[in-house]
Every structure is written in C-alpha cells, then in structure tokens.
C-alpha cells in the first residue's frame, strides 16, 4: 500500500507545472524515504531530478517500494480538478496498474477521486557524479526568470559569465546583443532579495535559452534559485521546495564547434 497526503494541492500542481514542459511522461519512484523522479527530456540535453521527502508529507505510507509511470498531461488534467486549498492524497496498491488521486475540500463537504492508468516506462537512469562547483550563484527566482525571458527574445544561446564581482548574462542574435549584469549584494536584512556568489574560479558557459525558460516554470515553488557551474560540466539549476524537498535541473552546455 502506498499513500501520500499533502494538505495543499497547490504544491503538487506547482511541481507538475515545473516538469511537464520538459517531460511527457515520468516514473515516480516511491520508497520509505519519499518520492523521487529522474528523467531526461526527449533530446537528452537536460535532466530533471525531483525529490519529495516522506517527512514533508502530512501523511506518508509506503509498505513496498514501487515505481509509478505517469503520463504528465493526464496527471495535469486530473490536478486541474483540484482546488489549490484541497487536501490531495495519492494512493496505489502494491503492484497496482492504477494510481488514485483523492481531493478533499477544507470542510470535507466535497470529496472527489480520479483513477489514472499507470504506464510501464523503460526509463534510463543516469549516475550524476558529485561535483565541487567553481561558482555557485544564489538569487531571487523571479529575477532569474525575468532575465532568461528578456534575453531569450534576442537569441537562442545565453552566455553566463561568473566572477567574484558578479554574474553576466549575454545573448546575441540577428537584432543585436543584450547583456544583464548582476552584482553581488550585501542585503543582509533582505536575504530573499540578495544575489550571492561563491566562487573558486571564474566560469563562462553557454546554454540554450529554451531550456532555461522551461526550468523557470519552477519559479512558483521557491523565492530563491541556485545556479551551480563549473567549466565543461552541466549547469545545475536548483529550486528548494520548502519543507518537502527540491527540484534540480541539469543542462548540458553548448560548446564551440
């Protein structure tokens, strides 16, 4: 028996929004410790890694580890039927070929359940090596989303240059070029608005704007985002999900031909 309950369906809706642009379907690996998802997009350029810890749920029971392959468009249709403040419970029997979502309104006057067929997904898992990153940038997630959206209008590739002083995002294309420089701030009283940089050595890497835009669909999950970079390794974009876990996106850099 598997059962996981969250008092706010809004959180699960946001998690789904954060992954469904990159993935059509995904396997949710459920165990004692929580729910994990790891999947590459179809073109094998980016990877989504989601962890929802069991202790972050209002109720969590997983007698036997199970993998639930879900079509994310179908899951999205179901979650649209929940109000943001509904309690949501995800249920499955051991070895089941369906999963059930139960939505309960706050006053319990409305209870609905939606059963969805599970899929057998032959998903590849990747071993992600531990990396000591040369640069770790922390900034407001809304600011990152704004920069990516603004710059993507002017080119397909963004160059991210990080030094101790700050981080520069640059794009060039047919129209011309655009640069956004963010300086490290010392907003100790407004930590949520600060830009901080931990740098071992400067890094400059190029990435496809289109993927960064997809990653920013996770913005509603967290006020902060963390970008980790080292030369010649994938970028890691991480959003913490308060008291529940995190979503990390990995993106292979573009290299000069």
């Amino acid at each position: 028996m598997f059962e996981a309950r969250l008092t706010s369906a809004a959180t699960l809706k946001k998690v789904l929004e954060a992954v469904k642009e990159l993935l059509n379907e995904a396997s949710f690996d459920c165990s004692d410790s929580g729910i994990q998802l790891q999947a590459m997009d179809n073109s094998h350029v980016s990877l989504v890694s989601l962890t929802l810890r069991s202790d972050g749920f209002d109720k969590y029971r997983c007698d036997r580890s199970l993998t639930m392959g879900m079509n994310l468009a179908s899951m999205s249709k179901i979650l649209k039927c929940a109000n943001n403040d509904d309690t949501v419970t995800i249920k499955a029997q051991d070895d089941a070929d369906t999963v059930t979502f139960v939505f309960e309104s706050k006053k319990q006057e409305k209870i609905s359940d939606y059963e969805m067929k599970l899929m057998n997904l032959d998903q590849e898992h990747l071993g992600i090596p531990e990396t000591d990153f040369s640069c770790v940038i922390r900034m407001p997630s809304v600011e990152f989303a704004r920069i990516v959206r603004d710059l993507a209008q002017f080119g397909e590739t963004v160059l991210i240059c990080c030094t101790k002083e700050g981080v520069k995002f640059s794009v060039s294309g047919d129209v011309g070029s655009a640069n956004v420089k963010l300086a490290q701030t010392n907003n100790f009283d407004k930590e949520e608005e600060s830009v901080s940089i931990e740098m071992q050595e400067p890094v400059s890497l190029s990435f496809a704007c289109q993927y960064l835009i997809s990653f920013t669909k996770a913005t509603p999950l967290s006020p902060r985002v963390q970008l980790s970079m080292s030369s010649n390794v994938p970028l890691v974009v991480e959003y913490e999900i308060a008291e529940l876990g995190y979503i990390r996106y990995y993106l292979a850099p573009k290299i000069e031909d």
Binding site: M40, L126, G127
Partner: peptide
Amino acid sequence: TPIQNDLTEYFSLI
C-alpha cells in the same frame, strides 16, 4: 555558432 552537447556525454547511464 556553439553546438548543443548531449547530457549523456557527462553522466553515465546506470
């Protein structure tokens, strides 16, 4: 123009 690398160049399949 820079070309897009594949993620599996960096991470091994397990």
